[in-house]
Amino acid sequence: MVEPLLRVADLARYFDVSPPWLNRVLEGQGRAILKAVDGVNFTIPKGETFSIVGESGCGKSTVARLVVGLYRPTRGSISFEGHDLASLTTRAQMAPLRRRLQMIFQDPFASLNPRWRVADIIAEPIRAFGLIEGRQAILDRVGQLLRQVKLAPVDGEKYPHEFSGGQRQRISIARALASQPDFLVCDEPTSALDVSVQAQILNLMKDLQRQLGLTYLFISHNLAVVYHISDRVAVMYLGRMAEVAPTKILFRRPRHPYTRMLLDTIPDLAMTGRQRQPVAGEVPSPIDPPTGCAFHPRCPHANDRCRSERPEPRALPDGALVACHGVEEGRVPDGPIGLVQG
């Protein structure tokens, strides 16, 4: 089997969110550990778009930040083309991998330094990795990148505040492409944008993927966007993966009760009059997650085993991975829910 571009094994990241030492002593409070990501596994082959979807607090953004090295993992490993990222300790060792692994952020109003000109923002990775020498050569490359994201080279002269949200996100993409990466981590890249602009950005991302052979890790809470852009989808809940499956299979035949619930919340834009189950309950606090399967308090099919024993992902014949005792025992219905025909 060909080595995937990215392999994540048993990845975990805990945050210490304890109150200050004095409060702990005086008020008798204990330490509090937030398990933002608690043992996730996935691989992404070259050229694929792999999406992670979930509600706020499920840990999807933490996974994105772990992959690009903004956080150090508490446990587990991330390997890029077979190289374990944890084994690279110095800045010089990391540079060649960092060049190939870039990120696009959610908020186009915060992701560009307001005091820098656009040309300098886009040139920063080129200069940092020493890819091109010479002022004019760098400017030419910046102009080329701006054209690649459908902006004009003269836009490099301006400051970020002179652009709309969609244009800023294009600048952000141009910066990410500046170091000629193979792999882009996209953390909710369109959720701050209006729908018509979202369509422009999604189209651009698909075009770039085709032209440059990019691989995407795409983080989103919007199921329709995920359906549109992904090859495979992972559903996260409270720091764990509930279900991982090829997009068509996940949407046509969701297995995990949480996936089924999540898909049921998609608005019925076609106005087919699809009947939906009202969703009960809210996401519990990740500081004090439920025992066993974290979803059991909201799950209509939960039994004693779900309350005590944590389910591990199990592969199904059609390529889906599902972490659910109910699915394993066959007591959860797994018919289509009418979203995708066929």
């Binding site: 709309s164 969609g166 244009q167 209006d194 729908v195 018509s196 602009v197 979202q198 369509a199 422009q200 999604l202 189209n203 698909k206 919007n222 199921l223 329709a224 966007v225 359906y227 549109h228 852009i229 949407f251 898909l263 998609i266 834009l269 076609a270 979203l339 995708v340 025909q341």
Partner: peptide, 24 residues
């Protein structure tokens, strides 16, 4: 019409979304 076309929908297998050029 453009707005409706630019919304991605589950089950619609278009490679590209309808795109309104420019911004408001």
């Amino acid at each position: 019409e453009g707005l409706m076309g630019s919304i991605p929908t589950v089950g619609a297998d278009a490679e590209r979304l309808v795109q309104i050029e420019g911004a408001m």
